[in-house]
Simulated assay, not measured.
Amino acid sequence: MNRLLYVFLFFVAFQTQLTAQASINDYKYIIVPKQFEFLKSQDQYETSSLTKFLFNKYGYTAFFDNEDLPKDLSTNRCLALISDIKKIKGFLITRLQIDLVDCNGNVVMSSQIGETKIKEYERAYQTAIREAFETYRHLDYKYEPSEAVIAASKSSTTSEAEEIEELKKEVEALKAKKEEMETISEEKKSEKPILEKKPKKVTKQIIEDVVELEPKSTPKTEILYAQPKPNGYQVVDMTPKVVMFLLNTSKEDIYLVKDENAIVYKEDGFWFLSKFSNDNLSLTQINLKF
């Protein structure tokens, strides 16, 4: 009886491994963040460098999230899985698990938990990563294009592109409206003083109600820092306090703002936050550092 139970459990585990293997084979690349969430700086204790090295060593194609990517991956981020290392609580022990996450934030596969009682941080993290990596080392990974993944990524890319284009059209429309209001204001200034007072107030109010679109670039502008995260970046201020989360799109230098009807994009060397709220569109220049 015990032997039959053992055979059954082994069969279930083997089938589970095959399913996971087939799933991970659907993806062509691995993207490794330069900084994992539980660490305080980029590549601290060489955690990112080691993770990328191990993926490439065992037959995967891995890149850092801030380096030049292959053309097909730059166009379609859904061809890659993002590696995310989670630190699991443990008493006097370091425990790490490596997840592979798709472009929609779904965990495709999780590694075994790597753990060690080494007290020195660098040795402890690297030892735990190597132990957790045994899961991916023995998968016999081989990329096999998946129609489901490609179709899903095309749908996601189309949706993002449409949303970005719609927001940009709204920005351009409001810019044109503001220029029209400024022209009206200039014409009013050339009229007689007796006719100037009331229209001037109305014009000023109309301009203020539309939106302030002129970029404000002053020494007092708060500096914001973009920190790499799976699927994009988290933006923090000088405190540091998390201000917003930016999600990658298929367009270069254009990001969606998570949980908001807004985008962040770069134009003429400056970064702008375009936000649509209560039927009003605001455009603000931000001092964003990557």
Rank of each mutant, 00 (worst) to 15 (best):
T239C: 07
P70Q: 09
N66S: 04
I129C: 04
E120V: 07
S74R: 07
I206E: 10
L9D: 14
Y45D: 08
E166Q: 12
L273K: 14
L224R: 15
A128K: 02
L81N: 02
N76E: 02
K200D: 08
E120W: 06
Y27C: 00
I263A: 03
G232Q: 00
R77I: 00
P215H: 12
Y27A: 00
K216Y: 09
P240H: 08
I194Y: 10
E147A: 15
P199E: 08
T135A: 03
V32D: 00
Y29A: 02
F10V: 13
A148I: 15
A132P: 02
A13W: 08
D102M: 00
F53D: 08
I164Y: 07
K204T: 13
N2K: 06
L213M: 08
L288S: 05
T183E: 09
L256F: 02
V32H: 00
V236I: 14
S277Q: 15
M244F: 06
W271C: 05
E147N: 15
Y136K: 05
D140S: 13
Y58K: 03
D99P: 02
E208N: 15
E267K: 14
E212F: 11
E147W: 14
Y225R: 09
S74W: 04
K275N: 15
K178D: 09
L281T: 06
T183D: 09
M109Q: 11
Y27H: 00
E182I: 08
I24M: 04
K177W: 08
L224G: 14
Y60E: 07
V242E: 06
I150C: 04
F11M: 14
A262V: 08
Q285F: 09
M244S: 09
I118V: 15
P228D: 06
E166A: 11
I98T: 04
E208V: 13
T19P: 01
F38Y: 12
F53A: 09
G269R: 14
N106F: 04
Q285T: 07
P33V: 09
Y136D: 01
N287A: 13
S41H: 10
I82G: 00
T19F: 11
F36Y: 05
N280M: 15
N76F: 01
I129L: 10
Q17L: 15
E122I: 05
